[in-house]
Amino acid sequence: MLKLTARQEQILNLIREAIENTGFPPTRAEIAAELGFRSANAAEEHLQALARKGAIELSPGTSRGIRLRDQGTGSAARPARSRPAQMALPHPALMQLSLPLVGRVAAGSPILAQEHIESTYNVDPALFAAKPDYLLKVRGMSMRDAGILDGDLLAVKKIDAARNGQIIVARLGNDVTVKRYQKTGAVIELLPENPDFKPIRVNPDQEDFALEGLAVGLLRNWN
């Protein structure tokens, strides 16, 4: 890997921290805002340079299609772990994940109930920060400023606990919603990423609330 500039190391650290804290790499706009760039195009230029130097991989067609390579560099480097010898990997087509696509969810029934599954997608696991269990079709624009739009396919990993700042899928009453998780004391808030929407407050004794999963990636149909 070629030596990185100080700015490139800064962006690489920002990407790593975003993935560790939220499960998502940042969007170009988020990188630009964090580092004071005038436009997302400046962030894109730095990302392309990082990709050419082998620090990251960029996946076209996804709003957060940034993947860290195994090796770090400079201050962002991490200790290398010894690995056992491996046999040759199978053909890439055999390594794809088969994920159910969940559409509208009926009230009171499991999110992965057969009647909710619209189809199955075969996808490259390298697109995601962690291995997802299913895809959820996003409804509405409450997470617009996080780069999650109506009609997107959100990759979701099943969990039973979340950290503050993570983007999660939650069941609340008759609805399944995508929001940013925030817990203060015993009170949980589900925060939108669009000023046109209000936060949802979950009371400690609210029985109709449940975490359904953690967002670990996003697919978008550009047609």
Rank of each mutant, 00 (worst) to 15 (best):
G217C: 05
L214N: 02
V176Q: 04
R144Q: 15
E207L: 14
A113C: 07
W222E: 13
K157S: 09
R28S: 09
N203V: 15
E118S: 10
I111K: 09
N13R: 13
A155Q: 01
N41C: 11
A88T: 10
G147Q: 00
A93Y: 13
D150A: 08
H91Q: 15
G108H: 02
I15Y: 08
P25Y: 06
L101H: 09
I31V: 09
N203H: 15
D208H: 12
N41M: 14
F209V: 03
A146T: 06
H116L: 05
Q114M: 12
A80I: 13
A42T: 15
T120F: 14
I159G: 02
Q96C: 13
T120W: 11
A170T: 06
N21R: 12
Q114K: 13
L94Y: 04
H91M: 09
S109R: 15
P100K: 01
S63C: 13
R64Q: 03
R171W: 02
L89Q: 11
T22F: 08
L12H: 03
K157R: 08
M1W: 10
L99Q: 02
P79M: 04
A210V: 13
E193R: 00
G103Y: 03
K131E: 12
P110C: 09
S63K: 06
R38D: 12
V102I: 05
S75R: 15
K53R: 10
H116N: 13
E115S: 15
A170M: 05
L89T: 12
L112P: 08
L172V: 12
A18I: 10
A106I: 11
K158E: 13
A155E: 04
S142V: 01
R69T: 14
Q114N: 15
E34L: 08
F197P: 01
L136F: 06
L190V: 02
L154D: 03
E34R: 12
G165C: 07
P110I: 09
L101W: 01
S59Y: 15
N122T: 14
G173I: 05
L127Y: 07
D124S: 12
P199N: 00
D160S: 14
Y121D: 07
M95L: 10
A146G: 05
N164F: 09
G103Q: 07
R16G: 09
Q10P: 04
V123E: 06
Y181N: 00
L219K: 08
L4Q: 03
R38I: 05
L94M: 13
L218I: 06
P100R: 03
E30N: 03
L58H: 05
R52I: 14
N122V: 09
P100N: 07
G213I: 01
K3L: 07
P110L: 02
E118K: 13
N41T: 14
I66W: 00
M95V: 11
A106G: 10
A162D: 00
A107F: 06
M87V: 14
P100Y: 10
P110Q: 04
I117N: 06
R67T: 10
A32D: 00
R78C: 15
A77W: 10
H91P: 14
E118N: 09
T62Y: 04
D124F: 10
G74I: 06
L219Y: 05
I148F: 00
P195D: 00
M1C: 11
G74M: 05
L2M: 14
I15N: 00
D150E: 08
